[in-house]
């Protein structure tokens, strides 16, 4: 099982790869809506990819108000 830092790194890697953003442009406290330039539908797409990658279920309501990678990672970590 990845630790919290590894989970965060994997999220950043996945987001950079899928949304074609240079990895070094992403930092843990970025607002991913702004940094990735995504809308709510693309955020759902990201949610699905994260569920597939980490083999977890992330109920939408847990992500309400979450917009930075670090908090997203902590939500995932609590389900691993």
């Amino acid at each position: 099982m990845p630790d919290a830092d590894q989970t965060l790194e994997q999220i950043l890697d996945l987001a950079a790869k899928h949304f074609k953003v240079p990895r070094d442009k992403l930092t843990p406290d970025d607002d991913f809506f702004r940094t990735l330039k995504i809308d709510s539908l693309q955020a759902l797409d990201l949610l699905t990819r994260l569920e597939q990658h980490f083999h977890v279920e992330l109920p939408d309501y847990e992500l309400q108000g979450v917009s930075d990678f670090r908090t997203l990672a902590s939500r995932i970590q609590s389900r691993l």
């Binding site: 809506f33 709510s40 539908l41 955020a43 759902l44 939408d60 309501y61 992500l63 309400q64 917009s67």
Partner: peptide, 12 residues
């Protein structure tokens, strides 16, 4: 609220 929302997550 839904119709006027400019929230980044209007599906929530």
């Amino acid at each position: 609220r839904f119709v006027e929302s400019k929230d980044a997550q209007p599906y929530l």
